[in-house]
Design a protein around this nucleic acid. Structure first.
Lengths: 101, 101
DNA sequence: AATCACACTTCCAAAATGGAAGTGCGGTGT
DNA sequence: ACACCGCACTTCCATTTTGGAAGTGTGATT
């Protein structure tokens, strides 16, 4: 399995990189993530569990039954990838059907 | 929609980035891609259609009924992202691993 | 005691994925 | 000429993933 395939196994799932992108701005709570991303709560819970198991993020306990999610060093290391993909996505409005590359 | 979300809309689908990674080594034919990637032929056909529509790759006609798939400039621009993700994936076996070299 | 915010879980329908087999076309061998 | 082959797909169907909506449990607040 190539390095790329190994990486995609972890952050290739839908919403995974968007969650990490949010957390690059600092730790956030479950409800905040859900509102900021507009994704269903079941998917969010599943992804957070997977990303925690993969060592990308961890649960940061706050008061009583509330907690925040924060990136581990391994999660922060995704900044380069996310920046690169984001820059690539910037130029997405320049597509037109042409027969020559 | 953020730049990252726009990018993921195109290359976030399963296999998409792996296909692009293959084509970074040069144009390949359908059968080669299938063998090199080990993916089902129906998915490959679907992804190639989507990536062509998105301007990431194009069909390069060869003799008779054969053709190769090659990256457009927009597809080649994914090299930075793929390299970054690949480098991130390299360090995936450090969960309970030994000491460093 | 009743209500509320928060962090989920459960249930079910819809969409994506994957394996296997089939299709069409042009070239090759006999 | 005619059977056969490789290539590039398409079709069919089972399995997995995703998504929306509603429900659960816990501790604080009124």
């Amino acid at each position: 399995m190539s390095d790329l395939a190994a990486a995609l196994d972890i952050v290739g799932a839908r919403w995974a990189l968007l969650i990490v992108e949010q957390l690059l701005d600092g730790p956030q709570r479950y409800g905040d993530l859900q509102r900021n991303l507009g994704m269903g709560t079941n998917m969010l819970a599943t992804r957070l569990r997977e990303l925690e198991a993969a060592g990308v993020l961890y649960r940061l306990p706050l008061r009583h039954n509330t907690r925040a999610y924060a990136l581990t060093p391994r999660g922060l290391a995704l900044r380069a990838t996310i920046d690169a993909l984001g820059r690539w996505g910037e130029n997405g409005s320049e597509h037109e059907a042409s027969d020559e590359p």
